[in-house]
Design a protein around this nucleic acid. Structure first.
Lengths: 320, 320
DNA sequence: CCATTGGGTGAGCATTTGCCCATCACGCGG
DNA sequence: CCGCGTGATGGGCAAATGCTCACCCAATGG
């Protein structure tokens, strides 16, 4: 945003990359034509296009409800009474699922932001939401507000890497209310302190009233994000699993029936649990590792919308 | 992998096309991989992708401010059949527009001068072209020639401040043919004298044959450059407006349809009108005040290229 | 029943793209 | 002042893509 070319037509490499990419993808020109047009070498044009893709300037969407995915979407909606269900085609586990889902989730977010009536949007954190944001188009949507469900400070004191609210704010210009405290308190005293902070009180209040909530989901295997990112210890993870943990939404752990556990980890989470009122909670998640958690969340009615990939959707529907 | 064919039996051709396109663009797979994945031939995969693109299933967006400008450029080219259109980002009226456009215009000039085959370049005058030159790089381009479209002597006998040809010559070392007479004659006799001067005759002849012509554009409001710079009186300006003047190119005034007026001011201009032959006339201009003039010039097909700013371009496209 | 037509198919080839590598310009520390 | 990375550049080539063509099949209509 800040540094737009003021005095130099050819300047900012990103501008040039964007221009080249536009000519290539939208304009349908060949790379040598682009090179000539921009007065650069063919190779440079090629690199610019590649760069624009790598930097995520180029967003591709396939505008077609693929039959199979539609079936799955319908299945999910019916089985779990969901309000929204989107299923991205194919995609295997892990990274692929993320890549597949992100554009769909981004489209859903844009749909939310495109609404005329001002919305209060609550947001979780995590890799999946980060990937989603990267796919979002910058749009002017200053009439909505966003609030974070969960603290944005990691255990080591750094800002959480997977914080998303600031990044969406960059793209939309919407006012936002991050929850600038640690995700989790270490003891009851700390917990009481955090919870009593005025901005936490107000953020929590806002989050509970959100018109729509968008979250990822965490699983409870050995590589559970809560553990990998250092929020809980290996012992706590074991203890949670012993207590029947199946997954977590915004750090709040629930069992395979979708009931929140009574467990120290849950007691000390500073953020709010996803609202359980009339306003929808949309979960963005995919990959085999998350299936158990998703199934539990769906069963417990914790979420009212799901954006996932084809294989995950099929798996959820086939075996639960 | 190849045995996916089993469950694809239901797919409609469009579904398949969408799926292939998705795997290609979003999934980043190669066409032969897609072919294998979907159990079809490589060619079919390629046809499916092409088809998806052709049917508009694939939507590509460039998430960068430049994207907008490129849209406008395409719009201008299409609407007015322009050969060249460049749109600089943002920029409000007046000075800002100039600052934004100048680098783009300079790049265009450099493109012209960078050509191998010798070009004969005709040039107008004015603030905009001056700003353009200031942005030009010095390049050695002695094989081109430049000729002025218009006299370079102001009514008070001084050299016109906005003469540009000498300055470009400084930067390029190209031989140049200024038109060293007043812009405008005061009566028929003077006019006949000027027009008969040998160097005027030859400059005029050259200008008419220019391979490319680059001009600014003048508007006809109270601060019309022709009037402000003292070439015409307030009465003449009023008279021109009464006759329907919408703008001027090189001092030659035209109406809102882009037809030159039959008016004393036009009769006594010593310079030539911009060529109306196969060789392009590029106009460099921006700012709201010039929109009326630009629209007229475009409508009348007086110019074949336009270098402007985003707001001006948007305005021209939206309301004409 | 056969000719026709329209869409789809793979082979083969031309074009376009992606990538590696030698080279060069530039900034930095010795 | 001189090497020494570091990163950009363009040449050249292999891979990937797009396109044409001859052919096939299935449906249609005489």
């Amino acid at each position: 945003m800040a540094l737009r070319t003021l005095d130099d037509g050819d300047a900012s490499p990103q501008d040039l990359a964007a221009r080249a990419a536009w000519l290539y993808y939208v304009g349908g020109m060949r790379q040598d034509q682009i090179a000539e047009e921009l007065g650069i070498s063919r190779q440079r044009a090629q690199r610019l296009v590649a760069r624009a893709v790598a930097e995520g300037l180029v967003k591709v969407r396939i505008d077609h409800p693929i039959g199979e995915c539609l079936e799955l979407e319908r299945g999910l909606r019916q089985r779990f009474g969901l309000l929204r269900a989107r299923v991205a085609p194919r995609a295997d586990s892990g990274q692929d699922a993320l890549r597949a889902i992100a554009p769909f989730a981004a489209a859903e977010m844009e749909r939310i932001f495109a609404q005329q009536t001002p919305q209060l949007i609550a947001l979780g954190t995590g890799r999946t939401l980060r990937a989603m944001i990267d796919q979002m188009q910058t749009i002017n949507a200053g009439h909505h507000r966003m609030v974070s469900l969960i603290g944005n400070v990691a255990p080591d004191g750094s800002a959480s890497f997977y914080e998303v609210i600031m990044r969406i704010a960059d793209k939309t210009g919407a006012p936002h209310y991050p929850m600038s405290v640690p995700v989790m308190a270490r003891d009851a005293e700390e917990f009481a302190t955090y919870r009593s902070l005025p901005h936490v009180v107000s953020s929590r209040a806002l989050a509970k009233e959100a018109d729509v909530t968008v979250v990822g989901i965490g699983q409870m295997a050995d590589d559970a994000p809560l553990y990998v990112d250092g929020f809980i210890t290996a012992e706590e993870l074991s203890s949670l699993r012993a207590a029947g943990a199946a997954g977590e939404l915004g750090g709040h752990v629930f069992d395979s029936e979708g009931r929140y556990l009574e467990h120290p980890v849950n007691e000390f989470m500073v953020g709010v649990r996803v609202p359980q009122n009339d306003n929808p909670v949309i979960c963005v998640a995919g990959g085999v590792s998350k299936i158990k958690a998703l199934r539990a969340a769906l069963k417990g009615g914790l979420i009212q919308g799901l954006i996932t990939d084809e294989l995950t959707a099929a798996e959820i529907l086939s075996t639960s």
